[in-house]
Amino acid sequence: MKRKDTAPAKSDLSVRLGPLKLNNPVTVASGTFGYGSEYQDYLQIDQLGAVIVKGTTLEPRIGNLPPRIIETPSGMLNAIGLENPGIDVFLQQHLPWLREHQVSVILNIAGNTIDDYTRICSLTEGHQGIMAIELNISCPNVAKGGLQFGTDPDTVEQVVKAVKAVTSIPIIPKLSPNVTDIVQIAQAAKAGGADAISMINTLMGMAVDIKKRRPVLGNVFGGLSGPAIKPVALRMIYQVYKAVDIPILGGGGIMSTEDALEFIMVGATAISVGTGLFVNPLLPREIIDGLNQYMMENDLTSLEEIRGAAVL
């Protein structure tokens, strides 16, 4: 370990995710951090690179019946069913609180039609404090018989284009890993005008209760997250980084600084921590400190110096 006497106590961890300037690359993943206040006793949330809030829809949603979560080997399945109070409540109650606490907010939105997405985006106009909008496109598209938006390149391009037309806030589509060719989807997002992309959302899975001879989850299928999906996330980010020129917000199973470094080395500009928070609520803070230490030990002036370093 080499450390020069002149080395600054704090490295410059700031990153540029397309048009966004983040103080550090560490964000918290949508749906794992509520609307920010829940983890106040554990983290100073204004220190996070950004808080990506719970997936929000046009109308309130009650969500799925329990059980909604079940642990699986090195991971968990969730089928929350997008329970949320709707965009109006977010704008009136949660956003002012986040603004007061000087949090960099990325709003995550979900819909079942392109119109849902554009209407939510229009409603956010004029509200200060939303740094970017993350589009959850792992939702069933009613116009396509419930097929996920994120699985069809044409639809991805259309929905991104449609929201870009109604808002000036940067748009970050969040890619679903449940596709044959992730590069094609990333290209479509870029063609639609995406400012950055976020990946990966959860992998669809299920678990069976052999005593009851039934699926465990009320919703039958759920989204797999946690360390179990990290290799898939890394592989997909690697492929997209190599083929598509667009900034990447990477996540999936990050549990440590070392994991975060792996994501940066396959091309992620920023990272998100989700399931890891449930295990260690201090994790985002520990990764920020860990990256700082890594930069000092390796004489880095910017994380740019290692971004994509492992991409051959």
Partner: peptide, 10 residues
Amino acid sequence: ACGVGACLGC
């Protein structure tokens, strides 16, 4: 999962 009201799992 979280125990603090953030994940809506319970």
